[in-house]
Each structure stands twice: as C-alpha cells, then as structure tokens.
Design a binder for these strands. Structure first.
Lengths: 155, 155
DNA sequence: CCATATCGTCAAGCTGGCTTGACGATTGCC
DNA sequence: GGCAATCGTCAAGCCAGCTTGACGATATGG
C-alpha cells in the first residue's frame, strides 16, 4: 500500500492545513466571545462587511464592490446591521441617488467593544506564544495578505 | 471624533484580523488550484471530510461524529464524493448493518494530487517567507491548534 | 432637453449545508 | 427468542447567503 504511507506522511506536515484550522478555530471563538460581549447576533458575514465601511460613510455599491458581491447582497447585510442599530443610511450630499452607509454612535461603540475582544484575544495569544513569536506571526500574516492581494490584483 | 482615531489605530494592528484574512485568501486559492488540477467540483465541505476517512475505511456514523454533524449530513457529502468516483462504500465485515466508507483507487490518486497542490503552495510559501519564518509559522500554527483544541475539550 | 448610465430597492428564486423525523435491517444482550 | 439499541437511508424542510431581473429616482454628457 504505497498510497497509505505517502498519505499519512503528507497529512502530518502541512503547514497550510494547520494554518487553516488554527484560523477557523480562532475565528469561531472570537465570534462567540463578541456575541457574548455586545449581546447581538453578529455573524461572520457581518464581521466581513464592517471593516469595509469607512468612518465617514461608504456607498452601498462601493461596499458591494469591495466585498465582491452584488449590491443586493451587500444591502441585505446592511439591512440587518441597521436593524440592530449599528449602522445608519444617510443621504449622500454629493449625489441624491446614493446613500452613505455609516456607523451609528452605538455602532461605533459596539465596534470598539468588538475590537476590544480581539485585543483581549491577542493579549492571550502573546501570552501563549511569547512576544517574539507573536511579533513574527503578525509580520508573517501581513506578508501573506500582501502577497495574496498582489496575486489577486495581478489576476 | 475620538472614535475615529482609535478605530483606525486598532484596525491596523490586529494580528488576528490579518491571520483570518491570510487564511481565507490562501484557502480560496488552494481550492481553486485543486479544482483546476483534479478537474472535479470539490468543495470546502469535502476537503473537511476527507482527512477523517481512514485508509482502511471508516463507518459513516463515525465520520459524522468526527465532523460533529448528523449522519445524514455526512452521508450527503459521501454521496457526492462517491458520485465523483472518489469514495466507495464497502460492507463492513464486522457488522452487516454498517458500511465502510473508503477511498477508491481514483480517490487515492486524486487525494495525492490534492496534497501535491498543497505541497506546491507550501513550497511557494517557503520561497516567499524564507525558511526560518516558514518553520516558525508551522510551529506557531501547530501550537494554536493545540491550544484551541484544549480549550474546546475543557469546555 | 433628452438619452443613457448609475444608485439603491423590491421581489423571487437558487444552492450549500445543515436539521428533524421516520424507517427497515441487523446486532447484542438478557 | 425476544427486544432495545445501532447502522445507514429516505424524505422533508430550514436558514444563510447569495443570485438574476426589474424598477423608480437621479445624474450626466452631448
């Protein structure tokens, strides 16, 4: 059974699989903690959307473009977050067709809380890994994101 | 606008967000490359299932337990992979009620191809990061997975 | 001033990935 | 031998997260 040995050997040593698994587990825990802290049914899709909203407000179409989905899909996410009171739609002074999606006061507060949760987890991360490894991880993750985005841009 | 500064500052420095983003981008690229290479519509759910299948075969109920889903859900994934010719159901000699889910010859080949893709990407990773960082990343990812699994086990 | 493009929304529908419920076949225990 | 428990399957349905299509309102360039 030549397959078996090779398979087992490869399973064990994949950095990528470990990385994927680690990220997934951490992400799930982060979401769970944020929900507990801000007491709102925030889902993964929402946390994907939020970082793309500029503090001065962002148009729905632009959000959709950044997320790589249709404007209807983005609109649905915004609807939900608006219903929770975290986002607001304001008329765009530069274009009466458009609206600016921006954070409500409560939304900003919740965002800070959420980021606080992330900070807590990062503090734990540093405790677990040690300062040197934590710094290295930050540097590596940034490098990977840069590389992937460069590939995406290059097509 | 006290919020704005704090928000911007925190956005930039989150290791976790970078890690999540890097993992997601890498994962998407890995899936795309595998599909291209083995020319089958393998999805994320499938790649989650496959590592849990022992080479000598695994019962459906056991697979479901390992995945943390119902046996029906696991059965559906197995159905799809069986339809692609990657898996087979064999009667379990130890229990006439049960069947052993195992890889077909083609499935083993495809699995090796898929793992080969991962290996290619890891080689690129090493080129990008350098040997020292790549090794550190592997070590860190393994530590994170261990930690998360320990937390999950502890409840 | 009109044609055309863009902004956001309404409506309907699809797909993946699950679930609950029920069932026949087979097992192992008393 | 009888009976509860377990194995896998069939059926139906739910929900998130999208999509396509159509539409009124507004903007813009010729």
């Amino acid at each position: 059974m030549a397959y078996a040995d090779e398979l087992e050997a490869q399973k064990a040593r994949s950095t990528l699989q470990l990385l994927f698994r680690a990220a997934r587990l951490l992400n799930e825990r982060a979401i769970a903690r944020m929900q507990k802290r801000i007491k709102l049914p925030v889902r993964v899709a929402h946390t994907t959307l939020l970082p793309h909203i500029d503090l001065q407000g962002t148009r729905l179409t632009e959000l959709a473009r950044r997320l790589g989905v249709t404007k209807q899909a983005a609109g649905q996410l915004v609807d939900e977050l608006e219903a929770m009171g975290l986002l607001e739609r304001a008329p765009d002074p530069a274009d009466a067709r458009a609206k600016l999606v921006c954070f409500s006061a409560r939304g900003k507060k919740a965002l800070l809380e959420g980021l606080g949760t992330l900070q807590d987890m990062e503090a734990e991360l540093e405790t677990l890994l040690g300062g040197a490894d934590a710094a290295t991880l930050h540097r590596i993750a940034a490098a990977l994101v840069r590389d992937e985005e460069a590939r995406a841009a290059a097509g």
